[in-house]
Design a protein around this nucleic acid. Structure first.
Lengths: 225, 225
DNA sequence: CCAAAAGTGTTGACTGTACACCCATGT
DNA sequence: ACATGGGTGTACAGTCAACACTTTTGG
């Protein structure tokens, strides 16, 4: 603290990061195994304490890189969790972030201190430390919104992808079947993607056209009145 | 702090509250005049430091009541602002909340220490303390979303209201004209409101039917696929 | 030629939008 | 009787949802 505050009570703040990916047709979340108490050896979101004069997003990026090897992700602030008792060490709030990554471009490091970063199927999560289950559930809702109202799917896909892969992303996250023709018509009409005129090769069926996102910046679509 | 953390750096956290209302056909924000430095005598969002073991939402309610007299509002967490330098006293993050109130039911107290809580037209804000302008802009976006996707308008209206009043809320917040017939058709089809079979009286035109919200809990509407 | 996934259009239902006049009341 | 805002319907356009067959490739 650069100066002291009269009657004001300092608290501790952590950041926690929810990293989603899609792998083997499953929505997965990145977890690490805690090296220390509390909850030693339990699976948890990558997270840690803020450093001095460190913005929370920087802290999230730093911790993510140090504990999992994941870097260069676009983080979005999710929510600040502050329930009393969420951390047995005392009054600790956590500012959570979330991001989407493409597993092909995301090599997990095996860190020496046994943090073993691992993507878990969101439907088969182990017992989690702290209130991290709550945080993941909240993040999942936000993810579904993002997919419905933005071009966020680009973060989950390789640079070039087929419409079937894209549709799979939607089906997995929204957890429902979508009609192929309607999906293509609608998604193409949004003008988020364009054909590359390349084809997927080396497979035994008809090769699919590869598409790419026109814009790798977040774009929203509008509604109501 | 109930226990000490080894190398971990305590920070200070404040909460700030954005209270919106609609009055005289204008969207207004509740501000107070700061009693102390920094930014003494400048207008600011009601806010203050977290107390020991106090959840942020409780802190927001406490501060709101103490500094403005406003109570019994439904607060929703907005965002955590943490830009370095946002507070000249040091590394202080703020967890912001927002709420909608009906001015008829919200009596502002004139507090002895000259905090003078006042609703300002959002289009005519004075110079604000800290990064409170940024916070208000963020809150305004969130407000427009809420209105489009939920029944949140109930918080801005008296128990009984006319469809014209409801439409005004939308026109003011979305900042555009809406066709009267289309608005009525659409809003009624959402089944958020029901006629009370009472009429507005004592005015010189044809008296309007009064409606009330069926449900004063947040409800969302769905889209896409 | 077979298996597998890619690709493609039409129809009917529903929703959004544009638009103008009569009605009920107080003065 | 008039001024004021309240209240109402229709038609056209656009979007959504349901639905099945042909094409291309590798083996």
């Amino acid at each position: 603290m650069t100066k002291l505050f009269k009657p004001y009570y300092p608290i501790a703040a952590t950041v926690d990061v929810v990293i989603f990916t899609i792998e083997e047709d499953e929505l997965k979340v990145l977890l690490i195994k805690r090296a220390n108490d509390p909850h030693k050896n339990r699976w948890a979101l990558p997270g840690g304490f803020l450093s001095q004069n460190e913005p929370t997003k920087n802290a999230a990026l730093r911790i993510l890189k140090d504990k999992t090897g994941v870097k260069d992700v676009y983080l979005e602030q999710l929510y600040t969790f502050d329930t009393l008792g969420r951390d047995p060490r005392g009054h600790i709030i956590t500012i959570s972030y979330f991001a989407l990554v493409n597993p092909d471009a995301t090599r997990l490091q095996k860190i020496e201190d046994l943090q073993t970063p691992t993507f878990f199927n969101i439907k088969k999560l182990p017992r989690l430390a702290f209130d991290h289950k709550t945080i993941i559930e909240y993040a999942k809702k936000r993810l579904a919104y993002k997919l419905e109202y933005t071009n966020a799917a680009f973060s989950l896909l390789p640079k070039k992808f087929t419409l079937t892969q894209l549709q799979n992303v939607y089906e997995i996250i929204l957890d429902k079947k979508i009609d192929k023709r309607n999906f293509r018509k609608k998604y193409l009409s949004l003008d988020f993607i364009k054909p590359t005129h390349e084809k997927l090769k080396g497979i035994k069926q008809r090769p699919a056209e590869l598409y790419s996102f026109i814009n790798k910046k977040p774009i929203e679509i509008q509604r109501f009145f």
